[in-house]
C-alpha cells in the first residue's frame, strides 16, 4: 500500500511537493519572511527524491537541471539578504542562466550541425528570458507564485505530452511546490517570497522546457506561450481587491499562456497517453 503510494507519479510530483513545501514554508516563516520561499525548494527536493533520487553520476542533463535548481536557490537566498544594485545583478543572472542552459544541452550541442546548431542556441535565450521575467516578479509574491504554478504545470503537462514523463513530473513538481506558496500567500497575513523562490522556479521550469525540446521531442512551439507567462503576470490586479480575488485574477492571467502551450503540444502530439505504451 505504502509502496503503491510512493510509486504513484501524482504523489511524487503533486501531493508530496505540495505538502512538504507548505509545511516547510510555514515552519521557516518565523526565521524571516523570505525564508518561506525556501519551502518551495524543500517541496521540490522531496519530489526529486521520489522521482530520480539524489544520485549525481553519471551527470545527465536531468541531474544537471536538479543541481542547477538547488544552486539557484542558494544564490536566491544570498540575493535576498544582500543590498545591491538590481539592474546589473539581473543581467548577471541572465548570463549565468544562459551558461546553465548551455551546460545542460552541451552533449547535443556538440554534435549539432548547421541550422540545428543555431536553433539550439535559442535555448539559452529562452532560459535567460524566463529568469529575467521572474526576477522582476520577486517583489510581487502573489503574482510570482501564481505565475510559478502556471509555468510549472504548463511545462510539466507539455513535457508529458511531448514524450517524457520524467521531465513532465519534474515540471509538475515545480507547479505543485509553487501551489503551496500560493496557499501560503492566501492564508498567512504577511508573506514574501523573493529571489530564493523566483530564481529556482524560473531556472528549473525553463531548463526542463528546453530539455523536453532537445532530449524528448517536445516541439519548440510549445515554449513560446510559456515565455509569455512572466509577461502576463505583470498585468494589473488592483491591490485594493480582496486577496482571493487578486489571486484568481493573477492566476487567470498566467494560466492562459500555459493552457495555450498545453493545447499546442496536444495538437502536435495528438495523444494524451504517452505513458501507457
Amino acid at each position: 500500500m505504502m509502496n503503491e503510494l510512493v510509486n504513484n507519479p501524482l504523489f511524487q510530483s503533486a501531493l508530496a511537493p505540495f505538502i512538504v513545501a507548505l509545511v516547510a514554508g510555514l515552519l521557516l516563516r518565523p526565521f524571516g519572511q523570505k525564508w518561506a520561499g525556501i519551502g518551495f525548494v524543500a517541496g521540490y527536493a522531496v519530489s526529486i527524491y521520489f522521482t530520480t533520487g539524489f544520485q549525481l553520476f553519471p551527470l545527465t542533463s536531468t541531474r544537471k537541471i536538479v543541481l542547477l535548481g538547488l544552486g539557484a536557490a542558494v544564490i536566491g537566498v544570498a540575493l535576498d539578504y544582500c543590498k545591491y544594485s538590481r539592474r546589473p545583478v539581473s543581467w548577471v543572472l541572465a548570463i549565468l542562466a544562459m551558461a546553465a542552459a548551455v551546460w545542460v544541452i552541451t552533449p547535443v550541442l556538440m554534435r549539432a550541425e548547421g541550422l540545428d546548431f543555431w536553433l539550439m542556441l535559442l535555448s539559452p535565450i529562452f532560459v535567460a528570458w524566463m529568469v529575467l521575467g521572474f526576477d522582476r516578479l520577486r517583489d510581487r509574491p502573489l503574482a510570482a507564485s501564481t505565475a510559478a504554478v502556471s509555468v510549472g504545470v504548463g511545462t510539466g503537462i507539455s513535457a508529458v505530452l511531448g514524450a517524457s514523463a520524467l521531465l513532465g513530473q519534474l515540471g509538475g513538481a515545480v507547479g505543485a511546490a509553487a501551489g503551496a506558496m500560493v496557499v501560503l500567500m492566501l492564508f498567512v497575513k504577511r508573506a514574501d517570497l523573493g529571489s530564493s523562490f523566483t530564481l529556482p522556479v524560473a531556472l528549473l521550469a525553463a531548463l526542463i522546457g528546453i530539455a523536453a525540446v532537445i532530449y524528448a521531442g517536445l516541439h519548440w512551439f510549445s515554449l513560446v506561450p510559456l515565455a509569455l507567462i512572466p509577461v502576463a503576470a505583470h498585468l494589473p490586479a488592483n491591490t485594493n481587491w480582496n486577496r482571493f480575488i487578486q489571486t484568481i485574477v493573477l492566476a487567470g492571467y498566467s494560466v492562459i499562456p500555459a493552457a495555450i502551450a498545453i493545447a499546442v503540444t496536444w495538437r502536435i502530439a495528438q495523444s494524451v497517453e504517452p505513458s501507457l505504451y
Partner: peptide
Amino acid sequence: GFKKRDDHLRSPDFLNAAEFP
C-alpha cells in the same frame, strides 16, 4: 514497431538517446 513508443524509449524516461547515443 510503433513510432510513438520508440520516441518514448529514446527519451530521458528510458534510453536518453539524444544524450547517450
